[in-house]
């Protein structure tokens, strides 16, 4: 009796449609990300590479790949990645905070805000590889930048940007900065504008100077989104690939000081050393998983739709970085 009714109930239950609608997402995720991830982890414990035309392995070797990894230049590349990321991120966050504060300061009455926003966000949409190629052409030994500097009398001989460590790293950082400061500015601006205006009015009545208002009111109020920007930018930094790859033609020159972790991974994938590629991926995955958890907990305690919405956008944008 009861069972018959249960069956009848199911006919107007909509639950199955929930499963049907989310199925494509999870199938695609399973096939193109989860199974590959499991395989990646699996092969990281195997000797599995190609030598000439012969394939060696897969032979289980335990943690040998990881040992080999730490004996190779892995740590150096980790250092490179961190340096390149920080060199771009510090100016990015400072300039973005400054611009966000200026754009939202009613007393400054900056005109053409929309124009500036459009301009500073534009580099974010540029193909990173094309942008790097452009920089390579512009900053090459006899490129327009050197030509301009010489004709202006600043330099006597061309400065070989791409043969110097700081020149190459500086260019990578500059490109990352240019590509991301507009995005961060817009996010921070939205966060500042989300603060109750009465708070600023109260601060003004209490005699806060613009500087004090910024440090005592604005910064603490937008802290969650700052944390978010920081973490997603770290993930973006870990993914850094296109710019240094194209700029240095995959060599990370000079002397592999511009080789990032993903470039390292890419080299192993190209040479079909799946064991080593797996080991790098697993370490990257562990770091990213920790950062993902931080993002999750940063997103979820703040129930406000406004904030989470913005963060969602930011997440997507940052995920593009690489």
């Amino acid at each position: 009796m009861n069972k018959r009714k249960k069956a009848a109930e199911k006919e107007i239950s909509y639950a199955k449609w929930g499963y049907i609608f989310i199925a494509p997402f999870f199938i695609a995720f399973l096939v193109f990300q989860l199974i590959p991830l499991v395989q990646t982890v699996y092969y990281s414990f195997f000797e599995y590479y190609r030598s000439g035309l012969t394939v060696i392995g897969p032979n289980p070797v335990g943690f040998d790949n990881y040992k080999a990894l730490f004996e190779s230049d892995f740590l150096k590349y980790t250092g490179n990645t961190i340096i390149l990321w920080i060199a771009g991120f510090i100016p990015q966050i400072i300039i973005s905070l400054l611009l966000a504060a200026w754009f939202t300061d009613v007393r400054l009455r900056i005109k053409g805000k929309q124009f500036f926003k459009v301009v500073i966000y534009m580099p974010n949409l540029i193909m990173a590889s094309a942008f790097a190629m452009l920089f390579f052409a512009l900053f090459s030994d006899n490129g327009p930048v050197n030509a301009a500097l010489i004709s202006a009398g600043i330099l006597k001989t061309p400065f070989r940007f791409l043969s110097s460590v700081s020149g190459t790293r500086g260019l990578v950082a500059l490109m990352n900065f240019l590509m991301w400061f507009g995005n961060t500015t817009i996010l921070l601006m939205a966060a500042v504008m989300g603060i109750n205006p009465a708070l600023f009015e109260a601060a003004e009545l209490d005699g806060c100077s613009p500087r004090q208002t910024f440090f005592r009111i604005t910064l603490p109020m937008i802290r969650p989104i700052l944390v978010y920007v920081l973490i997603t930018s770290m993930i973006g930094g870990l993914q850094m690939f296109d710019v240094p790859q194209i700029l240095t033609n995959g060599k990370g020159s000079p002397d592999r000081t511009a080789t990032t972790l993903i470039m390292f991974l890419n080299n192993h994938l190209y040479s079909k050393n799946y064991g080593m590629a797996g080991a790098i991926s697993v370490i990257l995955f562990i770091i990213c998983a920790i950062l993902c958890l931080l993002v999750y907990f940063n997103l979820n305690p703040t129930e406000s739709d406004r904030k989470t919405g913005k963060k969602g956008r930011a997440a997507r944008k940052e995920a593009v970085n690489g």
């Binding site: 009861n2 009714k5 009848a8 109930e9 199911k10 006919e11 107007i12 239950s13």
Partner: peptide, 23 residues
């Protein structure tokens, strides 16, 4: 309306039992 399912019992419109009839 048929927007909520009926856990048990019978619902009729006229003489027609509509528990499992879509909205």
């Amino acid at each position: 309306a048929g927007l909520e399912s009926i856990s048990s019992g019978d619902l009729y419109i006229g003489d027609r039992r509509i528990n499992a009839v879509p909205p």
